[in-house]
């Protein structure tokens, strides 16, 4: 059963189409890159999977179900912005996740935060941008979810933080879960991707395994991306 499936998924904001008849299916146990320039529909797709938006036409299914309360139990979402109240303490967030998510591994999260030197009493607003991003990632990856949706996890962070984030994603890999990473910074992450889905103007223009793409084209994913999206 595909962990994430889109069938002719269409989302229009007024007259503007953000996604147009997008179709694809992702199997469990993969690390998938959702690639495309800004405005290609990546964030829209992820929001649809999280029930933050509803489709105009077509459907999106998470583990065979329409996005709702049941899917939220198995999806762990890292949005591209900070979603913690600045006045929250790190410890408060730990409590919140423990309370609301059955699959949250508080011990793991505490370990990760300790490794980063983030103390529980600290307020989020006192952390630097890079540290905030890493903290958010700790919470998201400490859930034993079936689907991880990471929206631009490495955009706007320094290279060291980037390495940490990628290493964390790899470390948390498990065969029953799929990680979807949406990004436009391909070169840094293509090594860890199993598959790529290219979005362009709301349509799926390519979906194949990364090694297959490299064999076929003799190019890196990054190079193919530049070609596909040449202005």
């Amino acid at each position: 059963m595909a962990i994430l499936e889109a069938k002719d998924l269409t989302k229009r904001f007024g007259q503007t189409p953000a996604l147009e008849k997008a179709s694809f299916a992702l199997e469990p146990g993969r690390i998938v890159g959702l690639l495309g320039p800004n405005g290609s529909g990546k964030t829209t797709l992820i929001k649809l999977a999280n029930e933050l938006l509803v489709p105009t036409e077509g459907e999106i299914l998470v583990d065979g179900m329409k996005p709702g309360v049941e899917t939220k139990k198995i999806v762990s979402y890292l949005p591209d912005c900070m979603y913690f109240d600045d006045h929250m303490k790190v410890g408060d967030c730990l409590e919140l996740f423990t309370d609301f998510y059955e699959d949250f591994d508080a011990g793991k999260a505490q370990e990760m935060l300790a490794q980063l030197g983030i103390k529980k009493e600290l307020l989020f607003k006192t952390l630097s941008k890079g540290t905030k991003e890493k903290a958010q990632l700790c919470f998201v990856m400490s859930r034993h979810a079936k689907l991880y949706l990471l929206d631009e996890p490495i955009g706007g962070v320094d290279p060291a933080a980037r390495d940490y984030i990628l290493a964390t994603i790899l470390k948390n890999y498990n065969e029953d879960a799929t990680v979807v990473i949406s990004t436009h910074l391909i070169a840094d992450i293509e090594k860890i991707l199993d598959e790529v889905v290219f979005l362009s103007w709301g349509r799926v223009v390519r979906h194949q395994s990364t090694d297959e793409l490299r064999e076929q084209t003799g190019k890196s994913v990054d190079e193919v991306f530049r070609e596909v999206y040449k202005c």
Partner: peptide
Amino acid sequence: ARTMLGRQAYLTHTLPAS
């Protein structure tokens, strides 16, 4: 306003609650 439509909305609306 803050939790349903502001920054924290992403957190609120992805909780497993209807």
